[in-house]
């Protein structure tokens, strides 16, 4: 009897707690998300954001930091682009020219994406196709009118000028120099060596897709290099061994066949995209999967894949 009453009392207490909790939810649910950030307070640590970002006559203000939990407060709608590329941290500051009538300003978004591959992948992912990126001493960057985009080590920097005045452009150039001098260049990945050193493809044409490459759920850690025609793409990824690479290549082939038909040439099976008429193929070489997609015709596709095959062979 006592035991039964005890159980009942316990259940009643649980029910009361549930009711109370329902009426007193976590107050942070209602907090103004901007209030949680406290931007502009000097206590916000800079993290890896270099000091000395401003040239003479400029001033820095509004330092704010964002993590994967609150990135949406800064760039809601765009946050997923960076989260899919290993986002760890964003430091944001505004640089303003002081005492000048021009009112020049540059917003600096300093993303830590964890690895050089992710940083370069973000840069390539945002780069307009009509612009070429430059690479020097471990940095890759381009200037798009009022803005500069730079990848160095695991960091991706977006520097957004308020306009494209000479003062802003000078500020962007100063910023590039500071980043170059202050941040260590990342180590070259195996794919950088493959595409850059052996195939002569500029880093600004090589994207890294950590997840869901070509919209294939199985395709992870894929490096994709866009060729000069702007359409054909060579791609590589590593598997744990030769058998896994062969199986993965087969998965790519099946994936391509969802949008096309198999075409035989010699011993090789290619896939012709039924909408675009372009050709694709993947194959395993040791523990590496190599492939091409988007080639305008079979001859170009074969040549492109042969180049990639030879480069992988030369490196092994």
């Amino acid at each position: 009897m006592r035991l039964g009453l005890g159980v009942l009392a316990l259940l009643a207490a649980i029910a009361l707690w549930v009711a109370w909790a329902g009426r007193h939810p976590d107050p942070t649910l209602f907090a103004d998300p901007h209030a949680l950030l406290d931007p502009g307070v000097s206590a916000v640590p800079r993290g890896a954001l270099p000091a000395g970002l401003v040239p003479a006559g400029w001033q820095e203000s509004g330092l704010a930091r964002f993590n994967p939990e609150n990135l949406y407060v800064k760039i809601d709608g765009r946050a997923d682009f960076f989260i899919a590329r290993g986002f760890k941290d964003l430091a944001f500051v505004t640089l303003r020219e002081t005492g000048a009538a021009s009112g020049a300003s540059v917003d600096v978004e300093f993303y830590d994406l964890g690895t050089p591959a992710n940083a370069n992948g973000a840069l390539v992912g945002e780069k307009p196709p009509e612009l070429d990126a430059q690479s020097k001493d471990g940095s890759t960057w381009y200037v798009a009118r009022n803005a500069m985009f730079l990848a160095r080590g695991p960091y991706y920097v977006r520097a957004i000028g308020g306009d494209e005045s000479p003062a802003v452009l000078a500020g962007l150039e100063h910023l590039r120099g500071v980043m170059q001098a202050s941040l260590a260049a990342g180590e070259k990945s195996w794919a950088d060596a493959l595409f850059g050193d052996r195939l002569g493809i500029a880093p600004g044409r090589v994207a890294f897709q950590q997840e869901n490459a070509f919209s294939f759920g199985f395709a992870k850690d894929v490096y994709v290099a866009t060729l000069e025609d702007g359409e054909s793409e060579l791609f590589v990824t590593k598997a744990k061994d030769a058998a896994a690479a062969a199986a993965l290549a087969l998965q790519f082939e099946k994936g391509f066949q969802e949008y096309g038909e198999p075409v035989k040439r010699g011993a090789a099976t290619w896939v012709k995209d039924r909408y675009l008429g372009t050709f694709a193929r993947a194959e395993g070489i040791g523990d590496t999967v190599v492939g091409i997609r988007g080639a305008a015709n079979l001859d170009d596709a074969e040549k492109g894949l042969a180049r990639l095959r030879a480069a992988v062979g030369a490196g092994s």
Binding site: E126, P128, L131, A144, R145, N146, I160, E164
Partner: peptide, 12 residues
């Protein structure tokens, strides 16, 4: 026309 919704570059 690209890099939305935040944008940042006049080239976009």
């Amino acid at each position: 026309f690209r890099s939305g919704p935040t944008g940042g570059s006049l080239a976009d």
